[in-house]
Simulated assay, not measured.
Amino acid sequence: MQELFDFLNTPMVSKILGMLFWLIIILFAIGFLRKLLKRRIEDGAIRYKAQKGIEIIGYALIILLILVSFTFNDIRDYTIIIGLFTAGLTFTLQELILSIAGSFYIFFVRVYKPGDRIEINGIKGDVIDIDSIYTTIMEMGEWVNSDNYSGRIVKISNAFVFKGPIKNYSMDFPFVWDEINILITFESDVELAKKLILETAENQLSDYVLKSKAKWEEMVKRYYIENATIDPTIAINLTDNWVELNLRYITDYKRRRATKHELFDAIQKAVRQTNGKVILASTTLQLLKIPELDVNIKK
C-alpha cells in the first residue's frame, strides 16, 4: 500500500489524476446544462443554439485544462515524450482534428446553419444538425425528381468545409432562378402568347419579385456583384417543329417545384381561353399517301 501511495503522490500521476477529475466534472456539467436548457427553453432554434454553445464552451475548457496541466508547470523531463505523443496523435487523428476545426469554422464564419439548404461533397439537402464532428443533412434528389426529400439522412464530416465548394441556397439570398419552356405551333399568335405568359408569371410571382428585389439590393451593397433582372422575362427560340418560349423567373428556393406546377397550370388554362389563337405544340408525324399504281398485265 505504501508503494501505491508513493506512486500516486508522484507529480506526474497527481497531474493526470487531477486532470481526469476536472475532465469528469466538465463533461458532467455539459450534460447537466444541456438537459436543463432542453427543459427550460421552448423555442427549438434558440434551444439548439444554446446547447451547441454549451458544447463549444465545454470543449474549450477541456483544451484549456490540458494546456494548464502540462504547460504551466515544470515539463522539462517530459518535453520529448509530450512532443512525440502530440505528433503521433495529430497524424492519427488528423481527420478528427479537421472535423473539429471545421465545426468552429462553420459556427464562427457562418458558412451555413441548421435549416439552410446546401450542396456539399456532391450531396444536396437541408441541414438538420451540426455537431463537433458531423453535419447532418436530410438528403434531396438522387432517385427523386426535383427538390424533394429522398428520405435518407446523411452525415458529412465537417472537414469537407476545407476541401471543396459549399453551395448555399438560402444564406444571403433565399431565392433561385428557374426556367420553363412553353412550346407553341408556328400558326399561333406569338405576341399574344408572350403577353399571356408574362401576365400569368407576374400574377403568380408578384410576392417573390418584391421580396427578392429587396434582398438583391442588400446583396449589391454587400458584395461586388452587378444588378440583375428580377422580373420574369421571355426568350424566343425557333426550332424545326415549334416556337419555343423560354420563361425565366425567380422563386423561393423551397417552392421551386410547386411554383413550376402553378405556372404550367395557369398558362395552359390561359392558352385554352384564346380560342385557338395560341396552340400548344407537340411532336407530330405526317404520313404521306402512297400514289396509286395502274398495272396492266398482258397475257
Results as ranks from 00 to 15, higher is better:
Lys15Gly: 09
Gly53Thr: 04
Glu55Arg: 11
Ile82Phe: 06
Asp77Ile: 02
Phe5Glu: 12
Ile24His: 08
Phe28Asn: 06
Ala60Lys: 07
Arg110Asn: 14
Ile54Ala: 08
Gln2Asp: 13
Thr86Arg: 06
Leu67Thr: 08
Leu23Tyr: 11
Ile80Tyr: 10
Leu17Gln: 07
Phe70Tyr: 08
Phe32Ala: 15
Asn9Pro: 04
Ser103Phe: 02
Leu27Val: 03
Gly58Cys: 02
Asp77Asn: 06
Met19Phe: 09
Met19Gly: 09
Gln94Asn: 14
Phe91Leu: 13
Ser14His: 07
Gln94Glu: 10
Ile30Met: 03
Phe104Tyr: 15
Asp74Ala: 03
Tyr78Phe: 06
Tyr105Lys: 15
Arg39Ile: 09
Gly102Ala: 02
Asp6Glu: 14
Ala87His: 02
Ile26Ser: 00
Ile63Arg: 05
Arg34Cys: 11
Ile26Ala: 00
Phe5Arg: 10
Leu84Arg: 05
Ile66Cys: 13
Leu36Arg: 12
Ile62Ala: 00
Thr10Ile: 06
Phe32His: 09
Thr10Phe: 05
Thr79Trp: 09
Ile25Thr: 09
Leu17Ser: 09
Arg34Thr: 14
Gly58Tyr: 00
Phe85Leu: 15
Leu96Gly: 07
Asp43Val: 04
Arg76His: 05
Ile82Leu: 15
Gly88Ile: 10
Phe32Ile: 10
Ile66Asn: 07
Phe108Asn: 11
Ile81Lys: 06
Met19Pro: 04
Gly102Asn: 01
Phe70Thr: 01
Ala60Met: 14
Lys49Met: 11
Thr86His: 07
Ser103Leu: 03
Phe91Tyr: 14
Phe72Ser: 06
Asp74Tyr: 02
Asp77Trp: 02
Leu36Val: 12
Gly102Tyr: 00
Gly83Asp: 06
Gly44Tyr: 08
Ile97His: 01
Met12Ile: 10
Ala101Trp: 08
Tyr78Asp: 06
Arg76Met: 01
Val68Thr: 11
Asp74His: 01
Gly18Met: 05
Leu23Phe: 12
Phe72His: 04
Ala29Gly: 05
Pro11Cys: 01
Ala29Lys: 03
Ile41Met: 00
Ile82Lys: 04
Gly31Asn: 14
